[in-house]
């Protein structure tokens, strides 16, 4: 077989493959649910109810959406420039570590000073974490996929060391967790009495800013040009290395804001289970959003809903909640294939 570009895709061509991808994901999920001896309809219904079926469920989903918007944006920005940042997990923890160091007593300031300082410090920490692999790539040609992946393991061990050593809460009954954040360092709730913090608001603002930057600024254009064809971009006079480094700063910084928002907004302290793989899930979010900054918001909500819904379904019906990860991984693979089929026709030789 071979692939033939379609010059003018019909509306059906553009809609049918993505719909089929969703159907295929549901079929895979259903088969696995049946292997577990349960009825697919019940499971899917419980997932939807658990995700958005009540005010409590919806707030839970929105809280889970927040870090995924940040990591999803981080991945989308990087992947657009073909910078394969798989290290959002480490960058997230870097942001969380800085937030905890500054927010538990290293500085004292009123809230309106403290919060911006924490956010900027977290952003810088995440940016620095990604800068290493990117400089190795631009200077020496070391593949950033492997270095960013391996660095996740290194940094998590480092956080584990911090939580058992310098950052350990003396009042923590021996548990590896940090001290509580000062009240000035906590992100307030958006509405009184509603369990949703301003991290969500910051995430939406970040998505808007990235969207404007992407669509309107020179840097956004240069990043896309570098992503489409690095050699052509260099030939056209775009400073490729400098664009890659700026991309890395933005991407690493965004991922670190997820850590800031989780510590300052939701948890109030740092533990080693702060992120159940938000950095990796950000890849799925970004791909499902087709790397579009506003799409990331929608995709992050969708992904968060599946996770929160599957947790609740698992408690109610007993199908392992790993079904959520399977749904997302298969949705990712089916979707990249579907997007290809909206642009290419398969011809037999």
């Amino acid at each position: 077989m071979r692939l033939e570009p379609i010059s003018a895709p019909t509306p059906a061509r553009r809609i049918v493959p993505p719909v089929l991808a969703l159907v295929a994901t549901l079929v895979v999920t259903s088969v696995l649910v049946m292997i577990a001896g349960r009825a697919p309809g019940d499971v899917l219904r419980q997932i939807v109810i658990g995700a958005v079926g009540s005010k409590f469920a919806l707030l839970e989903t929105l809280n889970r959406t927040t870090p995924l918007i940040f990591t999803g944006l981080a991945v989308a920005v990087a992947f657009r420039a073909k910078l394969w940042n798989i290290g959002a997990e480490a960058q997230l923890y870097a942001g969380a570590v800085i937030t905890v160091i500054l927010g538990t007593g290293a500085m004292s300031a009123p809230s309106f000073v403290m919060l911006p300082v924490l956010a900027v410090a977290a952003f810088i920490a995440g940016a620095l974490i990604l800068l290493g692999p990117v400089i190795l790539k631009t200077r020496l040609g070391v593949d950033e996929v492997v270095t960013t992946l391996l660095f996740n393991f290194i940094f998590l061990l480092f956080v584990s060391f911090l939580l058992e050593g310098p950052l350990k809460d003396p009042m923590g009954m021996g548990w590896p967790k940090s001290a509580r954040m000062l009240p000035e360092g906590r992100l307030p709730r958006i509405f009184d009495g509603v369990r949703l913090h301003w991290g969500f608001g910051v995430a939406l603002i970040a998505a808007l800013v990235i969207w404007v930057m992407d669509a309107k600024s020179t840097l956004g254009f240069e990043m896309r040009a570098v992503g489409q064809n690095r050699d052509a971009a260099r030939f056209a006079g775009i400073p490729v290395t400098s664009v890659m480094i700026k991309t890395a700063v933005i991407s690493g910084g965004l991922a670190a804001l997820a850590g800031f928002s989780e510590v300052s907004g939701l948890k109030g302290s740092l533990t080693l289970d702060l992120s159940p793989g938000f950095g990796y899930t950000g890849i799925v979010v970004a791909m499902l959003a087709l790397l579009h900054p506003l799409g990331v918001v929608v995709a992050a909500f969708f992904v968060a809903a599946i996770f929160v819904g599957a947790d609740s379904m698992s408690r109610a019906i007993g199908v392992p909640s790993y079904i959520a990860d399977i749904m997302l991984a298969s949705a990712l693979l089916f979707m990249v294939l579907a997007i290809l089929l909206t642009k290419f026709r398969v011809r037999r030789d």
Binding site: L32, Y280, I283, M287, D325, A329, L332, L333, V336
Partner: peptide, 21 residues
């Protein structure tokens, strides 16, 4: 001919979650 980065990461996520499931 899909991106080998995306397919590979997707396969790792899929194989890991299938295994745990």
């Amino acid at each position: 001919g899909l991106s080998q980065h995306v397919v590979g990461i997707g396969m790792t996520l899929l194989a890991t979650s299938l295994t745990f499931y």
